[in-house]
């Protein structure tokens, strides 16, 4: 779904997608990923605005790891992420629900098979 926000004539275009994720001040939007523990993978935690990677990293540390949430951080410019379109969800994801044979539980394990 898209929203149309009324704008004043002199107001800059607030549409982030058309500006490559730049907001009015010119600062990039960054996505923050945190690795909670060694051995686990980085998980998306949220986003923030920063002029560059180093500031984004420090802000991510201050905003998202105040309570011992992680041992490692990634910050990625949001504009570098190519995402799937919600309108395509039906064609992208629905067909898998009709393919239960892709799940291991679909198969009967013969009694003769040991050690499984």
């Amino acid at each position: 779904m898209t929203y149309s926000v009324p704008r004043l004539p002199e107001e800059p275009d607030p549409d982030l997608r058309s500006k490559g994720s730049r907001r009015v001040s010119g600062w990039l939007l960054w996505e923050v990923f945190i690795r909670p523990r060694r051995g686990l993978h980085h998980v998306h935690a949220g986003s923030l605005h920063a002029p560059d990677g180093e500031i984004a990293l420090q802000s991510a540390r201050d905003v998202y790891t105040r309570r011992g949430e992680g041992v490692s951080l990634w910050v990625v410019p949001s504009s570098e992420i190519t995402s799937s379109d919600a309108a395509d969800a039906a064609s992208l994801f629905d067909p898998t629900s009709e393919k239960p044979f892709r799940d291991a539980t679909f198969y009967q394990v013969p009694d003769e098979v040991e050690w499984l």
């Binding site: 001040s25 923030l48 605005h49 920063a50 420090q58 802000s59 201050d62 905003v63 105040r66």
Partner: peptide
Amino acid sequence: PDLEEDIAMAN
């Protein structure tokens, strides 16, 4: 100047 720095300075 921005929300992120607000939290950083408070920290």
